[in-house]
């Protein structure tokens, strides 16, 4: 009997070993280990056996059963691993194929820069005021110390709707509206971003463009405050090493007036074609609010002073993004817009 049992064991282990899939294995389990399996069949003969031998044979049979079972489970594990490896191999994909992208559009580069500029000023505590694009002559010019027939009106070629109504040539009218809405001499710290229009059309002028003007009015506001504010802005806009230079200039609504240059953004001030080798590029006009402008809104220039500045958003976008023709910003070529 012992011989038989050992024979079953050898056969079983051999078969299990050579099984290649789960079905085969199941057949083998039924063949060797089920109630009608070979092992049990052999053990049925134990009753006729010597009582002394029974425990010995019983022990042997248990050990053999255990050995076969262990072999089964290790084989199952082995086959499962094999299956898994196979599946993973089959599931391998070409990760160099392009992805399935959800639809994504693009913000116009002009508005990217627009938002960035507004955010810098908001961070500096400026309130944002937007106004009408179609304005009266009074708010666009007269209140800003530019009476009719003033030679300075030639500086801004104007689109007229009627004798008294214009497309605003700058966002300065909002300075007047804002101060008019306040108590006399009440401090002001605003920027006025928006769309403006001038009768001009070439590579550096567009009949429609965008501007941000700033106005700060309060007791003891100085020209050094103007310079410091602009430095803070341009250093956030173009980098901490950006320098700001003021040059005397003229605007009817400011006195003293200053043209403002910054370190050339293309050559960092070493001199290049864009800055005509000067290391500086002109970026905005500014100055101390003219006393007449303050008087026009009921402020007392003896009590308060202020500064104002205005710069083109489009020009900033061109500098920031290296665009050399202003008209490209309004051509709406998606091959350009989709770069942003």
């Amino acid at each position: 009997m012992e011989k038989k049992l050992n024979q079953i064991k050898l056969t079983a282990l051999e078969h299990i070993n050579s099984a290649t899939d789960m079905e085969q294995l199941e057949e083998l389990r039924i063949k060797f280990l089920s109630k009608k399996g070979e092992l049990r069949q052999v053990l049925r003969g134990m009753g006729k056996m010597d009582a002394k031998l029974r425990p010995v044979i019983g022990k042997l049979a248990n050990r053999i059963q255990q050995e076969i079972e262990e072999k089964f489970s290790s084989k199952i594990h082995e086959l499962k691993e094999k299956q898994k490896t196979q599946r993973i191999k089959e599931e391998t994909i070409d990760i160099t194929l392009p992805g399935k992208r959800p639809p994504a559009g693009h913000i116009h580069p002009l508005n990217l820069i627009y938002g960035k500029m507004v955010d810098i000023f908001v961070g500096m505590g400026f309130e944002v005021k937007e106004g009408r694009e179609v304005e009266t002559d009074y708010y666009c010019f007269e209140a800003l110390n530019m009476p009719k027939d003033h030679p300075a009106r030639d500086m801004q070629d104007t689109f007229y709707i009627s004798d008294d109504v214009v497309l605003r040539t700058h966002t300065s009218p909002m300075q007047i509206h804002t101060m008019e809405a306040k108590q006399p001499n009440e401090p002001v710290k605003i920027i006025c971003p928006g769309r403006v229009y001038r009768r001009d059309d070439d590579a550096t002028h567009s009949p429609m463009f965008h501007q941000i003007e700033g106005l700060v009015v309060g007791p003891g506001v100085t020209m050094a405050d103007l310079k410091g504010t602009l430095e803070a802005f341009f250093q956030q806009m173009f980098g901490a090493s950006t320098k700001v230079r003021l040059r005397p200039s003229y605007f009817p609504f400011t006195e003293p007036s200053a043209e403002v240059d910054i370190t050339c953004v293309f050559c960092s001030g070493t001199g290049c074609r864009t800055c005509k080798q000067s290391g500086w590029i002109e970026v905005l006009g500014s100055g101390m609010v003219h006393p007449n402008v303050l008087r026009n809104v009921g402020y007392d220039p003896e009590q308060v002073s202020g500064f104002a500045f205005g710069m083109g958003i489009d020009r900033m976008a061109m500098l920031k993004l290296g665009i050399n023709d202003l008209r490209l910003l309004f051509a709406n070529d998606l091959r350009m817009i989709e770069q942003y």
Binding site: V188, G218, P219, G220, A224, D225, K227, L246, P248
Partner: peptide, 26 residues
């Protein structure tokens, strides 16, 4: 303005205004 331009605008210092603002977006 005559005084400041003959003196040179480069001599103007750099400070921040004492006017506070809320800085809110409408």
């Amino acid at each position: 303005e005559e005084v400041l331009r003959l003196r040179g605008y480069e001599k103007i210092g750099s400070t921040l205004p004492c006017v506070e603002g809320s800085g809110q977006l409408p």
